[in-house]
Amino acid sequence: MKVKVLRQQSPVSEPYWEVFDADVPGDMSVAGLLDHLNYHDDIVDENGKPTTRIGWECSCLQGICGSCAMVINGIPALACETFVRDLKGSEITIQPLQKFPVIHDLLTDRSVIYKNLEKENIFIGEYKPGSEENGKKAQKEHVHQYEIAKCIKCGLCLEVCPNYVNGQNFFGAMFANDCYLVAARNTDKRREIKELYDEHFGSTCSKSLSCMDVCPMKIPTIASMAKLNRR
Protein backbone atom coordinates (compact mmCIF):
# COMPACT_ATOMS: atom_id res chain seq x y z
CA MET A 1 0.00 0.00 0.00
CA LYS A 2 1.10 3.59 -0.68
CA VAL A 3 1.20 6.09 2.17
CA LYS A 4 1.27 9.71 1.07
CA VAL A 5 2.37 12.15 3.78
CA LEU A 6 2.33 15.95 3.59
CA ARG A 7 5.71 16.89 5.01
CA GLN A 8 7.05 20.24 6.20
CA GLN A 9 10.48 20.58 7.75
CA SER A 10 9.87 23.76 9.75
CA PRO A 11 7.14 26.34 10.45
CA VAL A 12 8.47 28.57 7.66
CA SER A 13 9.43 26.03 5.00
CA GLU A 14 7.23 24.86 2.11
CA PRO A 15 5.12 21.72 2.49
CA TYR A 16 5.66 18.82 0.04
CA TRP A 17 4.22 15.34 -0.49
CA GLU A 18 6.29 12.26 0.09
CA VAL A 19 5.13 8.73 -0.73
CA PHE A 20 6.10 5.59 1.19
CA ASP A 21 5.48 1.89 0.64
CA ALA A 22 4.12 -0.03 3.62
CA ASP A 23 2.94 -3.56 4.09
CA VAL A 24 1.11 -3.64 7.40
CA PRO A 25 -1.83 -5.62 8.80
CA GLY A 26 -5.32 -4.13 8.68
CA ASP A 27 -5.69 -4.01 12.44
CA MET A 28 -2.80 -1.57 12.69
CA SER A 29 -3.75 2.01 13.47
CA VAL A 30 -2.32 4.98 11.58
CA ALA A 31 -0.24 5.70 14.73
CA GLY A 32 1.21 2.19 14.46
CA LEU A 33 1.76 2.75 10.73
CA LEU A 34 3.73 5.98 11.36
CA ASP A 35 5.83 4.22 13.99
CA HIS A 36 6.41 1.37 11.53
CA LEU A 37 7.53 3.75 8.75
CA ASN A 38 9.86 5.58 11.15
CA TYR A 39 11.48 2.70 12.96
CA HIS A 40 11.04 -0.73 11.42
CA ASP A 41 14.19 0.00 9.38
CA ASP A 42 16.00 2.99 7.91
CA ILE A 43 13.32 5.20 6.43
CA VAL A 44 13.19 5.45 2.62
CA ASP A 45 10.59 6.83 0.21
CA GLU A 46 8.80 4.75 -2.45
CA ASN A 47 11.85 4.96 -4.72
CA GLY A 48 14.16 3.66 -2.01
CA LYS A 49 15.69 7.09 -1.42
CA PRO A 50 16.70 7.74 2.22
CA THR A 51 14.66 10.46 3.89
CA THR A 52 14.05 11.90 7.34
CA ARG A 53 11.71 10.35 9.88
CA ILE A 54 8.16 11.67 9.96
CA GLY A 55 7.43 14.08 12.80
CA TRP A 56 4.23 13.46 14.79
CA GLU A 57 3.31 13.31 18.45
CA CYS A 58 1.58 10.85 20.75
CA SER A 59 1.14 10.25 24.46
CA CYS A 60 -1.59 7.78 25.46
CA LEU A 61 -1.94 5.86 22.15
CA GLN A 62 -5.50 4.93 23.06
CA GLY A 63 -7.68 7.87 22.11
CA ILE A 64 -7.83 9.84 25.34
CA CYS A 65 -5.11 12.49 25.10
CA GLY A 66 -5.67 14.12 21.71
CA SER A 67 -1.98 14.40 20.76
CA CYS A 68 -2.17 12.58 17.43
CA ALA A 69 -4.95 14.58 15.75
CA MET A 70 -4.35 14.81 11.99
CA VAL A 71 -6.20 14.56 8.66
CA ILE A 72 -6.39 11.00 7.32
CA ASN A 73 -7.83 10.43 3.83
CA GLY A 74 -9.37 13.88 4.10
CA ILE A 75 -11.08 13.30 7.43
CA PRO A 76 -9.88 14.85 10.71
CA ALA A 77 -9.21 11.99 13.16
CA LEU A 78 -6.94 10.63 15.88
CA ALA A 79 -4.20 8.48 14.33
CA CYS A 80 -4.23 6.03 17.24
CA GLU A 81 -7.84 5.01 16.69
CA THR A 82 -8.05 5.11 12.90
CA PHE A 83 -7.36 1.64 11.54
CA VAL A 84 -5.89 0.67 8.20
CA ARG A 85 -8.72 -1.87 7.68
CA ASP A 86 -11.29 0.95 7.70
CA LEU A 87 -9.55 3.12 5.12
CA LYS A 88 -10.84 2.80 1.57
CA GLY A 89 -8.62 2.56 -1.51
CA SER A 90 -5.02 1.49 -2.02
CA GLU A 91 -3.50 4.76 -0.86
CA ILE A 92 -3.59 6.47 2.52
CA THR A 93 -3.06 10.22 2.64
CA ILE A 94 -1.96 11.83 5.89
CA GLN A 95 -1.83 15.58 6.43
CA PRO A 96 -1.38 17.80 9.45
CA LEU A 97 -4.44 19.67 10.73
CA GLN A 98 -4.94 22.49 8.21
CA LYS A 99 -6.36 25.16 10.50
CA PHE A 100 -3.40 25.33 12.84
CA PRO A 101 0.18 26.45 12.07
CA VAL A 102 2.47 23.52 11.25
CA ILE A 103 5.53 23.10 13.48
CA HIS A 104 7.02 20.07 11.75
CA ASP A 105 5.36 17.49 9.45
CA LEU A 106 2.22 16.32 11.31
CA LEU A 107 2.86 18.40 14.44
CA THR A 108 0.76 21.53 14.71
CA ASP A 109 0.58 24.44 17.14
CA ARG A 110 -2.86 24.27 18.77
CA SER A 111 -2.11 26.83 21.49
CA VAL A 112 -4.92 29.08 20.20
CA ILE A 113 -7.36 26.67 21.89
CA TYR A 114 -5.92 27.47 25.31
CA LYS A 115 -5.33 31.15 24.58
CA ASN A 116 -8.99 31.70 23.77
CA LEU A 117 -10.18 29.90 26.90
CA GLU A 118 -7.73 31.90 29.00
CA LYS A 119 -8.56 35.20 27.28
CA GLU A 120 -12.25 34.83 28.13
CA ASN A 121 -11.67 33.45 31.65
CA ILE A 122 -13.48 30.17 31.09
CA PHE A 123 -13.13 28.51 34.49
CA ILE A 124 -15.54 27.15 37.10
CA GLY A 125 -13.95 28.84 40.13
CA GLU A 126 -16.35 27.37 42.67
CA TYR A 127 -18.87 24.55 42.44
CA LYS A 128 -22.33 26.09 42.78
CA PRO A 129 -24.84 23.79 41.12
CA GLY A 130 -28.42 24.73 40.23
CA SER A 131 -31.21 23.34 42.37
CA GLU A 132 -34.05 23.41 39.85
CA GLU A 133 -33.54 19.88 38.58
CA ASN A 134 -33.98 16.60 40.39
CA GLY A 135 -34.54 12.90 39.83
CA LYS A 136 -34.02 11.53 36.31
CA LYS A 137 -33.46 14.97 34.84
CA ALA A 138 -30.65 15.66 37.30
CA GLN A 139 -29.04 12.32 36.41
CA LYS A 140 -29.17 13.15 32.71
CA GLU A 141 -27.69 16.55 33.40
CA HIS A 142 -24.88 14.94 35.42
CA VAL A 143 -24.07 12.59 32.54
CA HIS A 144 -23.96 15.54 30.14
CA GLN A 145 -21.47 17.41 32.34
CA TYR A 146 -19.35 14.26 32.69
CA GLU A 147 -19.27 13.87 28.91
CA ILE A 148 -18.21 17.48 28.35
CA ALA A 149 -15.44 17.23 30.96
CA LYS A 150 -13.97 14.41 28.84
CA CYS A 151 -13.09 16.91 26.07
CA ILE A 152 -9.44 16.27 25.11
CA LYS A 153 -8.87 19.60 23.32
CA CYS A 154 -7.61 17.78 20.24
CA GLY A 155 -8.94 20.42 17.84
CA LEU A 156 -10.74 18.01 15.47
CA CYS A 157 -14.04 19.87 15.97
CA LEU A 158 -12.36 23.09 14.88
CA GLU A 159 -10.64 21.48 11.90
CA VAL A 160 -13.90 20.16 10.45
CA CYS A 161 -16.08 23.19 11.28
CA PRO A 162 -17.22 25.32 8.30
CA ASN A 163 -17.38 28.40 10.56
CA TYR A 164 -14.03 28.10 12.30
CA VAL A 165 -11.19 29.91 10.53
CA ASN A 166 -8.30 30.63 12.88
CA GLY A 167 -9.84 31.28 16.27
CA GLN A 168 -9.83 35.07 16.06
CA ASN A 169 -13.54 35.54 16.77
CA PHE A 170 -15.36 32.22 16.43
CA PHE A 171 -14.00 29.71 18.93
CA GLY A 172 -15.85 26.51 17.93
CA ALA A 173 -17.63 23.58 19.57
CA MET A 174 -14.94 22.90 22.14
CA PHE A 175 -15.45 26.44 23.50
CA ALA A 176 -19.25 26.07 23.52
CA ASN A 177 -19.03 22.87 25.54
CA ASP A 178 -16.61 24.33 28.09
CA CYS A 179 -18.95 27.32 28.41
CA TYR A 180 -21.79 25.00 29.24
CA LEU A 181 -19.74 23.06 31.79
CA VAL A 182 -18.81 26.29 33.60
CA ALA A 183 -22.38 27.65 33.52
CA ALA A 184 -23.76 24.35 34.82
CA ARG A 185 -21.20 23.85 37.58
CA ASN A 186 -21.22 27.47 38.79
CA THR A 187 -24.65 29.02 38.34
CA ASP A 188 -23.35 32.44 39.46
CA LYS A 189 -21.57 32.62 36.14
CA ARG A 190 -24.53 31.83 33.88
CA ARG A 191 -25.15 35.34 32.61
CA GLU A 192 -21.51 36.16 31.98
CA ILE A 193 -20.92 32.81 30.23
CA LYS A 194 -24.03 33.14 28.10
CA GLU A 195 -22.71 36.43 26.71
CA LEU A 196 -19.33 34.91 25.87
CA TYR A 197 -21.03 31.91 24.28
CA ASP A 198 -23.18 34.15 22.08
CA GLU A 199 -20.23 36.29 21.08
CA HIS A 200 -17.79 33.50 20.20
CA PHE A 201 -20.11 30.68 19.14
CA GLY A 202 -23.90 31.10 19.23
CA SER A 203 -24.13 34.06 16.87
CA THR A 204 -21.99 32.46 14.15
CA CYS A 205 -22.53 28.68 14.27
CA SER A 206 -24.38 27.53 11.14
CA LYS A 207 -25.26 24.23 12.84
CA SER A 208 -23.67 21.84 10.37
CA LEU A 209 -22.86 19.73 13.47
CA SER A 210 -19.88 18.19 11.69
CA CYS A 211 -18.08 18.74 15.02
CA MET A 212 -20.13 15.95 16.53
CA ASP A 213 -19.28 13.55 13.69
CA VAL A 214 -15.54 13.79 14.30
CA CYS A 215 -15.45 14.17 18.09
CA PRO A 216 -13.42 11.23 19.51
CA MET A 217 -15.17 11.59 22.88
CA LYS A 218 -18.64 11.73 21.25
CA ILE A 219 -19.54 14.91 23.15
CA PRO A 220 -23.16 15.92 22.50
CA THR A 221 -22.43 19.52 21.52
CA ILE A 222 -26.01 19.95 20.32
CA ALA A 223 -27.26 19.41 23.89
CA SER A 224 -24.88 22.09 25.20
CA MET A 225 -26.10 24.45 22.47
CA ALA A 226 -29.77 23.78 23.19
CA LYS A 227 -29.29 24.51 26.88
CA LEU A 228 -27.18 27.62 26.39
CA ASN A 229 -29.46 29.00 23.67
CA ARG A 230 -32.39 28.57 26.06
CA ARG A 231 -30.76 30.42 28.95
Partner: peptide, 11 residues
Protein backbone atom coordinates in the same frame (compact mmCIF):
# COMPACT_ATOMS: atom_id res chain seq x y z
CA UNK B 1 6.48 20.04 26.71
CA UNK B 2 2.72 19.52 26.17
CA UNK B 3 -0.56 20.83 27.62
CA UNK B 4 -2.03 19.09 30.69
CA UNK B 5 -4.62 17.30 28.52
CA UNK B 6 -1.77 15.21 27.07
CA UNK B 7 -0.41 14.09 30.46
CA UNK B 8 -0.59 10.52 31.72
CA UNK B 9 -2.93 11.69 34.49
CA UNK B 10 -5.85 11.58 32.02
CA UNK B 11 -5.36 7.82 31.72
Amino acid sequence: PFPSERSQSVM
